[in-house]
Design a binder for these strands. Structure first.
Lengths: 242, 242
DNA sequence: CGACTTAATGTCAATGCGACGTTTAGTTAC
DNA sequence: GTAACTAAACGTCGCATTGACATTAAGTCG
């Protein structure tokens, strides 16, 4: 750190990959850009870091400003930094991406400050013929979704997709939506209920429209799921050559 | 991203947590700072991002310049961004930390460009009465070591601590050094050898000074270890309240 | 050759998990 | 009211994996 070669100063932005499960499908929160570059195009919510602000505070503020979500009550973790020299036509902009996981909120996230915010099904962004996103947001989104998929295996974050009280079936549909697979209901319930501290029973029941009413649970104290819940051999990623 | 409020531009640095195992103990590569601030104090190797350089390229360059290690042959992954407003007395500096894992190299990493680079035992930095590091490097280092510990459970990176050819016992000492525990040699060998693509036998043997010669292996194509090798119930981290 | 050292292979019980069957507690149709 | 229907909850069985520990194999040294 001693050389006086051409150093770079960059503008810093914080961008958010906000995930939720709606109608049994994974959705991503997008905004429509109001200004150039990429005006009118969908993008991840985010914005410039303020004067004496730290990264996490900035993520929480952006979340409130652009989507009227309360980031202090959401699962929020840093995803990574993206700084390719040409990722923003305005000049050098480094962005720090955060992954947020939200329960399926009653508000369709419109009408408020978050005028342009919409929930987009994830498969319209990562599947074939995807909706193009501004900047390198498509790559950031892919990284965010992949992170969520992995964390469902090894941690208890799945509960962050649910409201305060939830049924085992609701928790299972989170796994199915994020992984894009089906999960056996009986084995899933056994795994979740015997895992220490994943969920705790509340004693309440939810009267459903049909069938036997389901018991309600709240999320437990455990952060890690040990042993993990592994996806059916996820095409175990391999190194390029070697 | 539309408001024209007080934006921040920051200098960008890339810092490296370089880990290796020497004499059965985890070590961290540190440099001695030559200039203010924190002149003379140990710090993580790193430096300012250059003009049109991307983050990973910068990490590889710093690694070569400050430690004469070839980052293209090392395991190198992004750890995270650190941007607390007061983390650098010179002003706003955002750093992107990288985790590098190196085999125990014959060169004691001195005499070359890397004059001031030394391998420091990790327990002198994270244990009681730790050697103080410049900036927030102590926190970054803790995050790096924790990341390495977790990745040993779920991935095959442990082999990145070893030279091209290695014995099962050498691989096991990596786990023991990084985790700070003992691992049963027989169960460990069974796990590693039956795991698909973790190690591949080379057919060679290493004549040791004493005892039966050990078979040599090269690292396999698998990146993930599935099912993972879990540490003995690692005090399963829990959430603050709830 | 026998003592010693480390590697490699083996045994066995307990646990976890995938695949699937059965019972329970509600609602709706007649 | 009762039968049909639906979804939740609980149970069974065999296999794979694991932890704990014993035994055999292949070298060196005295």
């Amino acid at each position: 750190m001693t050389e006086s070669r051409p150093r770079v100063t960059a503008a810093i932005t914080v961008d958010l990959v906000v995930l939720t499960v709606r109608r049994d499908r994974l959705h991503v929160l997008l905004i429509e850009r109001g200004t150039e570059p990429y005006a009118g195009q969908p993008a991840l919510p985010g914005g410039f870091l303020r004067d004496r602000e730290d990264l996490l505070d900035s993520a929480i503020r952006e979340l409130r400003e652009e989507t009227s979500l309360d980031g202090r009550r959401l699962h929020l973790e840093q995803l990574g930094a993206y700084a390719a020299a040409d990722r923003d036509p305005r000049g050098r902009v480094l962005t720090v991406a955060y992954l947020a996981i939200a329960p399926n909120l009653p508000q369709p996230s419109a009408g408020t400050d978050a005028a342009g915010a919409v929930w987009m099904p994830a498969d319209r962004l990562v599947g074939p013929d995807p909706v193009p996103l501004a900047f390198d947001h498509a790559a950031i989104l892919r990284d965010g979704i992949e992170r969520a998929r992995v964390e469902l295996e090894y941690t208890t974050v799945a509960a962050a997709f649910c409201k305060d009280e939830f049924t085992i079936t609701e928790l299972r549909t989170v796994y199915e939506a994020v992984w894009g697979t089906t999960v056996d209901p009986r084995n899933f319930a056994r795994k979740v209920l015997t895992a220490d501290g994943f969920v705790v029973p509340t004693g309440h029941k939810r009267a459903s429209e049909m069938g036997r009413p389901a018991a309600l649970y709240r999320r437990g104290a455990a952060l890690l799921l040990n042993p993990p819940m592994l996806r059916a051999q996820s095409m175990a990623r391999r190194r390029p050559s070697a």
